[in-house]
Design a protein around this nucleic acid. Structure first.
Lengths: 333, 333
DNA sequence: GTGAAAGCGCTAACAA
DNA sequence: TTGTTAGCGCTTTCAC
């Protein structure tokens, strides 16, 4: 891996300090003569040099690395968030380490530990379990952390998220305005605080009546969507005039099951969901989606950790709300 | 960040060596007495210890880190690949650093450099430009690298990819078997070797005639799909009986444009594309897709870098082909 | 059974 | 204007 500073020093006859100074661009600051600089630069141009960040990090106690733990990286929402976060990092010369917890608190804990061991400068976490409370004095010595997307009650970490409750309320209201007389809301993984909030928003708009039913399934998956649709169909009766789903996966499973058993999704059923997929627009149905702004979330998260790294910790329990967008696909003219 | 080994040594009265031995689980190997072990374990249980991997890495010259550079992490294909690769890494106690190049060779080069500086144990790269040739003697000292998905001619790096040409040929043949009399193939980013191969496969199955048209656009995006569809519509004449697209993004743009200008996608048009999206199944059309096996690709890539790290470098220019699946969604009964 | 000591490659305060 | 030096926290050989 190219030469080390010591090797360059030895082979050019200068000291390590001198080499460090010109290689780190602080040559003029340390008044290294132009001639020396040129000699060193030429040497490096010829023989190459790759700084050993490990050594640098050990010395400076910074890793120029940030860690991100997501429940599932392949989930398009987290993948997009990560892509934007990585872009933020890259523009500041940082590097992003991303890990999945698979919604398993134990895996999450291990992932956090592993990142801490590597001395990440900060952590971004989309948690799958409540954070253990940390005493204030301990907190100040800790690696900066911000939580995204999900807020567990009692957690004092800084949170950056959409207002899931309000978004669900608006989505439900939009569905009702579009003419739905009875709705079913399919929810995967109802312990997830984001889903809890969405259910609350749904109830706030639709009430508790027979016309606003709620079905839940243990996890957030295509299979869960299928299972809930099966339950609904087995209960008999007409299909609801609107179907709401807590995620794209659930929607996908629900519609696929409908298509397979009933040969088609009724084109007059209003469909409402969270997160966007480009092919939703091609359905004949009225589709209303809440699209979260992954880029704004990523920027806010990056800003927050930058502030914390810089020592400007936000107050305990600060919540940052990032607006989402209500999108009408194929609304009736 | 908890105590260091030196602190624990000092505070328990043992030496750094002894602490290291029990903390690294090699206590019995070094015949540390049970009593000493217990004292140290108890101390650590009470005060905590987080190993400093940076220091460890510097000493051992291994980082237990692997780097992945993708053209675009938010692309579901790469996101899924990355998720599987990360799972492989995690199961071996490694950590994955992922970066996007945005299809920019300069950004790609910087990303690789940055990972090299961090001393990653190996690199996985989905390249957006040909790799500069490296002399054999230099190669042996280098960080192990495998290339995925795309093979630039003349590149001697080990490649792991689907057989894009053959898959395209099979897909095209399937479309023809399904009754298509004339086809159009929309291709984004035709310099990408994977796309070059797909075009070759398309030609191999469909020939060069008027019934097998090819449209290309500079990049792989929804906008490119729209633009190509616009070009097609402006040329006048009937729509083709089959539309092939080089990626989901292109397909999405093409169909959205069709829907907006013609109010609907003709339900008898056969649609064929690469990569899978759950909502494709809901279209009334016959949809045929090539679904790549991201998990198998990730496993193969991980195996390859593990081999290389272990010193079992594959021969120069080795190509590993991972099978893809031809999937019929809503084929006519 | 346990400890001493060298050194991974780098930075930065201090000397000259 | 350039060099010397003392570590960062860990592993590991060798000595007691």
């Amino acid at each position: 891996m190219a030469k080390t500073i010591s090797e360059i020093a030895e082979e050019t006859g200068y000291s390590r300090t001198t080499i460090t100074m010109v290689l780190s661009g602080r040559a003029s600051e340390y008044r290294i003569s132009a001639r020396t600089q040129k000699i060193i630069r030429d040497y490096v141009d010829e023989h190459g040099y790759t700084i050993n960040q490990t050594a640098r990090n050990l010395k400076t106690q910074r890793s120029h690395t940030i860690g991100f733990v997501a429940p599932e990286i392949a989930n398009p929402f987290f993948a997009r968030f990560m892509a934007h976060l990585e872009a933020c990092c890259r523009s500041e010369g940082l590097v992003l380490i991303t890990t999945s917890s698979g919604e398993d608190p134990l895996v999450e804990a291990r992932a956090l530990q592993s990142l801490l061991e590597r001395g990440v400068d900060a952590l971004v976490l989309a948690p799958c379990a409540p954070r253990p409370a940390v005493s204030a004095k301990k907190r100040s010595r800790q690696t900066p952390m911000v939580v995204i997307d999900r807020h567990y009650p009692g957690d004092n970490t800084q949170v950056i998220a959409s207002d899931h409750r309000e978004n669900a309320r608006l989505l439900t209201a939009a569905v009702m305005s579009a003419g739905a007389s009875d709705m079913v809301f399919f929810c995967g993984h109802p312990e997830n605080p984001a889903i809890v909030a969405r259910i609350a928003g749904f109830r706030a708009a639709a009430g508790e009546g027979e016309n606003a039913r709620l079905l839940t399934a243990a996890d957030d998956s295509v299979a869960a969507g299928k299972a809930m649709m099966q339950t609904l169909l087995e209960a008999g009766g007409a299909l609801p005039s609107a179907l709401l789903c807590s995620s794209l996966l659930v929607l996908e499973g629900a519609l696929q099951h409908l298509r397979r058993t009933r040969s088609a999704v009724p084109p007059d059923m209003i469909i409402a969901t969270f997160d966007y997929d480009g092919f939703l627009e091609l359905l004949p149905n009225t589709v209303i989606v809440v699209r979260q702004d992954e880029e704004a979330l990523a920027r806010a998260a990056f800003q927050a950790i930058s502030d914390r790294i810089g020592g400007n910790a936000a107050a305990e329990g600060t919540r940052t709300v990032v607006d989402a967008e209500l999108l009408y696909l194929n609304a009736p003219a």
